[in-house]
Design a protein around this nucleic acid. Structure first.
Lengths: 200, 200
DNA sequence: TCCTTATCGCATCTTCAGTTGCTTTTGTGG
DNA sequence: CCACAAAAGCAACTGAAGATGCGATAAGGA
């Protein structure tokens, strides 16, 4: 007995809608984003979207979940400075993509209404932070930074300025930002600024 | 000839609406925020709100502009570490206020639709950053940090983690964050991480 | 105190996101 | 190749956000 039917048209429709949403996000941003427009772009009836994803926020949530499933290569050069420079560059590259920028911005907006969106967003960021934090774990293992450095807090310091610019000031996420932030976090980490007990 | 009429009822209505909006933001957040609800809380007809502020985003924009006009005391203890700890504490205190947290979050959402909201938000953050950056200017004058330190970039490093938590992860903006971030930025600044030309 | 008119209240209308009932298409198991 | 049901299409409906026209109220100058 076939309870669900994941193959064939369903999968095709899902893919079309996802792609159309990304396209729409890249063009108009989260602002002029409507279910009708996505349905039109995807060549699909809007009823289908409402039935499968309940609303726009749900669609974005699943889109981000898809994105989260894609693994990103974490730099491992054996040098903390170099690792952080590369990692910062990667983050900047991802967030510069118009679709992803609009998706993240949109989910922040969606999170104000939908707890599910908020949870997904939180999970996405924390997941990525966890993945990137191994850079500090390795550095600690090498003895480059104190062993009790909190890698998550260190990553927060690296990522914070990026989202500040993306969401609030609109300043460019360029190489200069990557260089400065990476250097700052590396020196702070070496000085033991990210240890659990505040060093004073 | 009286072209406008800023005193009396108009001013009272404006104040009522502003106060009601803050109350509504504190209770429901930006999510369940409607013009009808604000009008109800303010004891004002919704038509008035639409006529004076065009829409909800416009109202929030003006609210933030009001907030931006209020000066905040910038610490000046003569010690960079202490200044940054105090400044971080102040930022955390402000952003912990439910009304302000919801207002900022809401404006990020509004900025995806309204360029005016985006401009106001950008102006607000950059204005605050400019005000806070004197901490680094003074430190540079004292010779505590390199003279060519870019104070805005340094402030970004201090503020970034706060907005990251507020908007994305939902982690608490507590004293531990203030201590860690302040220490990290102070050591990075002393090491010259925020100079225009990347130090490598 | 009176008069002008900026501003607000009220009722109504419009628009569009989101819902629902029903029909049509098309995977999938036999 | 056939039959069944899952999933998509279609069209009409619903409800609430937001716009509009007009009458009522009250600043503020004379």
């Amino acid at each position: 007995m076939a309870v669900t039917r994941p193959g064939g048209r369903s999968a095709r429709v899902r893919a079309e809608v996802m792609a159309a949403t990304l396209r729409a996000l890249a063009e108009d941003g989260y602002g002029g984003l409507t279910v009708d427009r996505i349905a039109d772009l995807a060549g699909v009836n809007k009823t289908t979207i409402y039935r499968r994803w309940t609303d726009l926020d749900g669609l974005l949530t699943e889109l981000l979940a898809d994105l989260a499933a894609r693994a990103v290569p974490i730099p491992d050069t054996g040098d903390l400075d170099l690792d952080l420079h590369r990692l910062a560059g990667l983050i900047g590259g991802v967030l510069t993509d118009p679709s992803i920028a609009a998706l993240v911005t949109g989910l922040v907006a969606a999170a104000t209404r939908s707890p599910e969106a908020a949870a997904t967003l939180r999970g996405f960021i924390l997941g990525r932070a966890g993945a990137g934090s191994v850079v500090f774990t390795r550095a600690a293992a090498r003895g480059d930074i104190p062993a009790d450095t909190d890698p998550i807090h260190a990553i927060e310091a690296l990522v914070g300025p990026y989202y500040l610019r993306l969401l609030l000031t609109g300043e460019p996420l360029d190489a200069a930002l990557a260089a400065r932030t990476a250097t700052a976090v590396a020196t702070a980490a070496r000085a033991g600024a990210f240890r659990p007990a505040p060093s004073h």
